[in-house]
Design a protein around this nucleic acid. Structure first.
Lengths: 353, 353
DNA sequence: CGTCCATGTTGCAACGTTGCAAGCAACGTG
DNA sequence: CACGTTGCTTGCAACGTTGCAACATGGACG
């Protein structure tokens, strides 16, 4: 049977309370006593019973991380960073995925599914931030990837408008004039795709251009990118550059370009968003917008921690904007030849740093 | 404040115990009483306090899933399936990653890190199954991807020897004679890479062939695949086929082939292992060995459930072998042209089903 | 010498739940 | 009518931990 405080106390010849003081650093303990207790802890292999601790303290030490999918390169990498950032602060992460299903997204948030958590970090797909707030009902919440104005919720995201504008500028700077976009999602009322579309148009407008086409997608995966580029290639005036709202879309498009004999970047410049690892190893390697993922994870956990610990002060919702940068690679004829610092030769290049 | 059994009981005019009976179906309750209690539960938005329940019952309802990384396409997809399978059986999954670090792998297993779980599903990297058993110290355990003989641990895996043999056969059947392998890992004493190497050699031997080269790797990622193929291309007698022990290795190799002007599959047949989504959208699409992942996840959770619930019967360790199949695609000149059922046109083709 | 304070140590109660065994009413049977 | 049975409900105690307040001890200080 597992050792309890009582057992350790008996062995060390002190009270239960003193053992508790030692193991949880709750009060000063004389060095000699501490040593004796530690020895007993070692001998019995004592581990605190977290259920009891949680019951007593009213906290679980668990934070929920809710993402649409774990499987995708972007969210997988983000989840990993969140888990690390949380561990550093003593939290354990309960990772949940919604698969984009609105009902599941809601159930996870209102707590009727699964375990109790002290707070949540959510990357919403089909639920608006306002709705999130009411569902969570007072549970500390940090929202990723969306910026919305209301409630005592913190938001962490990059500046989608500026990032998309930078993408458009990059394509135009490379001499492209017939620029299209893939990745709009009018069906979802909410933000990310809208914001990127907006920034994309702004970036073109600065040079007196406007999009030759904007293709809607059902999701941000390769299949949709492939379908969308096929569609674009059938247009009378083919684009000479395409900005995809995710790297996965771009990789699907890249595959279709190869099939159709369209040379990238000579005939078509292709650009993605997210900087997933696959993009660095694609042939040609994929130019992309790289968010500083570590910062997103770090700031998100930091915000949530502050909220959980200072539960009763009603902090106003903060909006945290993390920086991004354009990573020029081969797919836009960028300055980085194969084998150079950002090429496949260095799998841990800037894309992850 | 959150409602407790006591509050519900007061509102419904019954005892605390009766409310408990209703919410946990512990004893028969008169329909009228049940209805009254349910109404009170609704009104107060009562949710059972799991910390208290766990403390009382000695179980947490959590199972740990430990994988080397979440970030990678293979483990990401597997983790997702495990979470789903676990949810169906009422478990919540605590997903942890080791990053391949032996020390962290050990800490996670012996429970000194993080939360208490009722059992664990582990995909080990640097720790042998025997060591796992002693670390877990009686905690119900299911090991994925390795088969080792000892202890009361269940193993779930495909037949690595047979799978690698099938891969070799596939390459030989395509007329290849100078076949190499990428992915050996002599440094790690343990199984998977060894088993695949063994099966690979067997498959060649059946046709009177032997490997023209076997390249060791430090990990199973794209970067190592790229490095390894560069090495192979420098050999005096270039191979005409390469079997990579993971799809990621193969994708790295594919990239290098494109850089070096080596045509795939004409000059070089390339084959992977795992059936990750990226492989379906690579150009050319990647022939691979596909495990039935759903079965792995399903069986693993099933085994663990049996062990956790029947904790005191000492079941002997079971070895569960899940089937696999060869998915011929373009990279070995396979029968599947672009756009056909298994091509990029159907992102949810056999690779996931 | 008495008082105060800092430092260590302690017992008690409580967190919200469920196992246990007993209680109670109503009913069927001998 | 006594008795056992069935169906439903209840009070008590316990799970292992920590907050609280009180209690010893010993040294510094007026």
């Amino acid at each position: 049977m597992a050792a309890r405080l009582k057992d350790v106390a008996a062995l060390a010849g002190v009270s239960v309370r003193t053992v508790s003081n030692v193991v949880s650093n709750a009060a000063p303990v004389a060095p000699a006593t501490r040593a004796r207790v530690m020895a007993a802890v070692e001998e019995l292999g004592y581990r605190p019973n977290l259920a009891a601790r949680n019951l007593r303290q009213g906290r679980t030490g668990l934070i929920g991380v809710v993402v649409p999918e774990i499987h995708s390169p972007y969210f997988g990498a983000l989840a990993e960073l969140l888990i690390d950032a949380a561990r550093e602060r003593g939290w354990t992460v309960l990772l949940e995925r919604t698969g984009g299903r609105p009902d599941l997204e809601r159930r996870l948030l209102d707590g009727s599914e699964g375990h109790q958590v002290d707070g949540m970090i959510v990357s919403p797909w089909s639920t608006s931030p306002a709705e999130l707030a009411s569902l969570a009902g007072g549970l500390p919440l940090v929202v990723l990837g969306e910026l919305a104005p209301d409630g005592a919720i913190d938001h962490v995201a990059l500046d989608n408008v500026a990032a998309a504008r930078d993408a458009a500028r990059h394509l135009v700077a490379g001499g492209r004039r017939r620029v299209a976009a893939i990745g709009l999602q009018s069906e979802l009322g909410h933000g990310t795709a809208e914001l990127r579309a907006e920034g994309f148009r702004q970036g073109l407008r600065e040079s007196g251009l406007s999009p030759v086409a904007e293709v809607e997608v059902a999701d941000l995966h390769r299949g949709e990118g492939a379908r969308a580029l096929r569609e674009l290639l059938r247009l009378p005036g083919r684009p000479d550059a395409v900005f995809c709202f995710s790297d996965e879309l771009a990789l699907g498009a890249l595959r279709v370009a190869a099939e159709e004999g369209v040379r990238v970047p000579e005939d078509l410049a292709l650009m993605g968003f997210d900087d997933i690892e696959d993009g660095r190893f694609a042939a040609p390697s994929l130019t992309t917008i790289a968010p500083y993922r570590e910062q997103i994870a770090e700031r998100a956990v930091q915000c949530l921690t502050e909220r959980v610990l200072g539960r009763f002060e009603a902090l106003p919702g903060r909006r945290i904007v993390v920086p991004h940068r354009v990573l020029p690679r081969e797919s836009t004829g960028g300055p980085v030849p194969p084998g150079a610092p950002d090429g496949p030769g260095t799998p841990d290049g800037p894309g992850r740093g």
